[in-house]
């Protein structure tokens, strides 16, 4: 009954377009599934040809998992993140994220969903240069209307956790790469999203800093039970994950967990 109610709730919130959830899946407690990609395809027009980046790929990610997606450059890792976050729309297939059918939402609803539920960590940090460290971190709280006492407290805790409390009034151009990325981590977590997406977060850092950043991301997300999807081409970065998926030829395949 709870699973049927869950389906009913999901139907009322979205307009499920195509597939039904299979019987085998129905038998699993729905609360454990966090993200399901179902026959997802995405391609781009390059000149006169269409390049298929994702080719009917499917995967299920469970609540609280840290999943790494490995693949060489140009394999479609960033595209996959864009689809999961609602930045882009798949050509075919469905994305079910935490009870929502993202594929059925319009741009506004996807944006609002992203605002509330997703935190982003980019390769090139992407801090807003005209805002201070604190203002960058507080921005997601403001966007969600949560810049109250509790929100401020949470932001400061995160700022402390990333070790930059004393740099709260500095502008990003005065920070090192590692410091900027730590601010980006705090920004990605401050509004308590259910999912954190990290796109090559250590790609622009040296080995030592990269390791520190990965450990920080791992610690902060695991301790709060969030899902984390890390996209990387670095096997060592992937070793922090619970699961590693390999993206090749447009399809996601399970890789054996690599030892660290």
């Amino acid at each position: 009954m709870p699973c049927l109610m869950g389906i009913a709730v999901r139907k009322s919130m979205t307009k499920p377009k195509k597939e039904k959830i299979s019987a085998a899946e129905l038998s699993q407690p729905q609360v454990e599934k966090f993200l399901r990609l179902s026959n997802l395809s995405k391609g781009y027009i390059e000149g006169k040809q269409r390049r298929l980046v994702l080719d009917k790929t499917s995967v299920t990610i469970y609540k609280g998992e840290f999943v790494a997606i490995l693949g060489r450059s140009g394999s479609g890792k960033t595209t996959l993140l864009n689809l999961i976050s609602g930045i882009d729309v798949a050509d075919e297939g469905q994305i079910y994220l935490n009870g929502w059918n993202l594929s059925a939402l319009n741009d506004m609803k996807r944006t609002l969903y992203r605002r509330q539920n997703i935190g982003f960590i980019f390769q090139f940090f992407n801090l807003i240069p005209t805002l201070t460290v604190w203002e960058n971190i507080a921005l997601p709280l403001e966007l969600n209307g949560k810049l109250d006492k509790e929100g401020v407290q949470r932001g400061e805790q995160l700022l402390e956790a990333v070790g930059l409390l004393d740099r709260r009034n500095a502008f990003p151009d005065l920070l090192s790469g590692g410091e900027q990325q730590r601010v980006a981590i705090a920004r990605a977590l401050v509004h308590n999203p259910s999912l954190v997406l990290a796109d090559e977060p250590t790609g622009n850092l040296d080995e030592e800093r990269g390791r520190q950043v990965l450990e920080l991301i791992d610690e902060l997300t695991r301790s709060s039970g969030k899902n984390l999807i890390l996209v990387t081409h670095n096997p060592e970065a992937a070793s922090y994950a619970d699961r590693v998926l390999f993206l090749q030829d447009g399809k996601l395949e399970e890789q054996p967990r690599l030892s660290s």
């Binding site: 005209t130 403001e142 966007l143 969600n144 209307g145």
Partner: peptide, 17 residues
């Protein structure tokens, strides 16, 4: 969901630009 109608930091970054 309560959203901020006038996120100050959004306008602040504009003004500083």
């Amino acid at each position: 969901m309560k959203v901020s109608f006038f996120p100050h930091n959004l306008w602040r970054q504009s003004w500083r630009y």
